[in-house]
Design a protein around this nucleic acid. Structure first.
Length: 551
RNA sequence: GGCGGAGUAGCUCAGUGGUAGAGCAGGGGACUCAUAAGCCCUUGGUCGGUGGUUCGAAUCCGCCCUCCGCUACCA
């Protein structure tokens, strides 16, 4: 492990068209855990997340509610931020595409593309659904009454033709292929990379980057002749149109670290180390975005991680399907850390996963209440009862069976976090929790305590060693899992009677690695009061059976 | 249609040539420090189908069935 370095990671910005769903925040929770991991390791970390707020749909929705688009998105953003607080998410910046510095960044990206010769005016035409915008021909259904949008079959489609700016993506096919070849790991998991490579090899078409008839958007900064569209009073000529989604949304990643206002800060943080995105926007991030950056003369992100979806009975959890879970409701039931743990352990970060309340509750009870929570509680209770609350030191690593198990678990855990396989990372940690629970039953401290009370000195020494090892195991898991359960980790430390040197967002304190060596905790002292960390939840079935007939 | 992937215990999955595995769920047991938790044992699968290769196949090859991902302007 090298000395502190800088680590910049981002999530996709969430579309602020309605209240947040758990499936949207899942990605942010995962990114937050990775960000905390880097902060605690001592890396200088910048974690960016935020909201995408411009679109025709948002303007329409706001109008239906009798609000201005700005009022509407302000309300949605407040809901996103509240839900993220409830989930313990601590970004270094929450960016909004409506932020003033983002407008400057978008304009600069467009100017650079224009200067490079990658922007030209052309005509965009196609079937337009008033509810959804332009639809690809492959997305349309045709019947006797004509062509319809599959999502709004009753709405009449219009054939629209607009004069728009286009980005010359076609010119980047070769450069993208070369970049993929020279950076084989830059899109992960590998099968996602292969999909994109296949797409590139099919040939790339230019894409439109402006709209004439979408007033709720960032003003397009250029006129047809390339001159500025800014008016003498500083405002922008509406006749120049607005920026369409690609430049508007993707640019947030550079805005977030100072582009173009603060070149020094930007140079320090860019390129991003990691973009975390959902599989539905892979193409935007691994084909269009790199081409845009090449056009702007900027380095490309080092890695893009493509996660899967949360499914409900095999179907994608989504706002439009209406089958999404309210993050606040889940937090109310499982707690902040319970929700974070269950999301990141139960859902595989590299593919789709079916979820349900039942799966969440079972995972919470099995892993948090029964395995880890109870391990901490039983270890502390025995220490209080048998040793009067004095915390014994763990045995030397060579003499402690758990030390070897820890060494193995820690190595796998660190490897899996680095590989973004967060579910596997937690599994490695919990395998060690299982080893600690088996250790308790193998050693039977209650038998040792009885013998010690009867004057058996060897039993007394062994009791101290066993309980010292157990408390050490609890400490190590508590700190290693802290990026995933950041509000519980300090409580673990407090109950164990050891200091917790990190700030609420994971900054400060020594490099985490120093605290994860067996025996690296403070010696001596007393434990705190044992309090269950994760109260066991009753399943729906248990509640029903307990109520009994006629109740 | 093209390219890619997957079908293994009730559920989620691991297992790429040598007598079928894990976790959870279900059943039984011994214990008692603990959040009626933990620990031990255990029920359960002709490893999608079929035909081959091989001394031997979940594992390699052919065909078939089913499912999924990608196949450009909703974000």
């Amino acid at each position: 492990m090298s000395a502190a370095r800088r680590f910049y990671l981002t999530t996709a910005i969430a579309y602020a068209n309605s209240r947040p769903g758990l499936h949207t925040l899942y990605e942010v929770v995962g990114a937050d855990a990775i960000a905390r991991w880097h902060r605690m390791r001592g890396d200088e970390t910048f974690f960016l997340t935020g909201t995408d707020e411009y679109s025709v749909n948002i303007a329409i929705t706001a109008a239906k509610l009798g609000k201005t688009p700005r009022q509407f998105v302000d309300e949605m953003v407040a809901l996103f931020r509240a839900a993220e607080d409830a989930l313990g998410i601590a970004p270094d910046r929450f960016i909004r595409t409506t932020d003033p510095d983002h407008v400057r960044a978008v304009h600069e990206m467009i100017r650079r593309a224009y200067d490079r010769g990658d922007l030209y005016q052309g005509t965009y035409e196609g079937w337009y659904c008033p509810n959804e915008g332009f639809r690809a021909p492959s997305d349309l259904v045709e019947d006797a009454t004509g062509v319809h949008c599959p999502n709004h079959p009753g709405v009449e489609l219009q054939w629209l033709s607009e004069r728009n700016w286009f980005f010359r993506l076609s010119a980047y096919q070769e450069r993208l292929e070369r970049y993929y070849a020279e950076h084989p790991d830059w899109v992960q998991p590998e099968y996602r990379r292969n999909e994109m490579l296949g797409f590139i090899r099919q040939g790339l078409e230019d894409f439109s980057v402006s709209r004439e008839q979408a007033p709720w958007g960032i003003p397009f900064p250029l006129r047809a002749d390339g001159s500025t569209a800014q008016l003498p009073d500083g405002s922008w000529d509406p006749a120049a149109g607005t920026v369409y989604v690609w430049f508007d949304a993707l640019t947030n990643y550079v805005t977030g670290v100072g582009f173009p206002d603060d070149p020094e800060r930007f140079t320090r943080w860019w390129p991003a180390d990691l973009h975390i995105i959902g599989k539905d926007i892979n193409r935007l991030h691994t084909i269009m975005w790199p081409a845009m950056l090449m056009s702007a003369g900027l380095p490309l992100p080092r890695r893009v991680w493509v996660h899967g979806w949360l499914l409900v009975q095999g179907e994608r959890m989504s706002k439009s399907r209406g089958n999404f879970l309210d993050p606040n409701a889940v937090v109310a039931a499982l707690g902040t850390d319970g929700t974070r743990y269950v999301l990141l352990r139960e859902v595989a970060f590299d593919r789709d996963t079916d979820v349900s309340w039942d799966s969440f509750v079972r995972r919470y009870n099995a892993d948090l209440a029964n395995d880890f929570g109870n391990l901490v509680n039983r270890s502390l209770s025995m220490t209080a009862r048998y040793l009067g609350g004095e915390r014994p030191a763990p045995r030397a690593a060579a003499d402690a069976p758990l030390a070897a198990a820890w060494r193995a678990a820690r190595a796998v855990h660190e490897e899996k976090v680095a590989a973004c396989l967060l579910h596997d990372a937690l599994a490695a940690l919990w395998e060690f929790v299982g080893a600690a629970n088996r250790f308790v039953d193998a050693e039977q401290p209650w038998v040792l305590a009885k013998a010690a009370r009867a004057g058996d000195t060897a039993a007394r020494v062994r009791l101290h060693g066993v309980l010292g090892d157990l408390l050490e195991a609890c400490r190590l898991v508590g700190f290693a899992a802290a990026p995933f359960i950041p509000r519980t980790a300090p409580r673990v430390a407090e109950q164990l009677g050891v200091p917790y040197p990190y700030e609420p967002d994971g900054n400060g304190g020594p490099p985490l690695g120093e605290l994860l060596d067996w025996g690296s905790g403070p010696s001596g002292g007393r434990i705190g009061t044992p309090v269950p960390l994760f109260p066991r939840l009753e399943t729906e079935a248990e509640l029903v059976s307990r109520a009994g007939p006629g109740q």
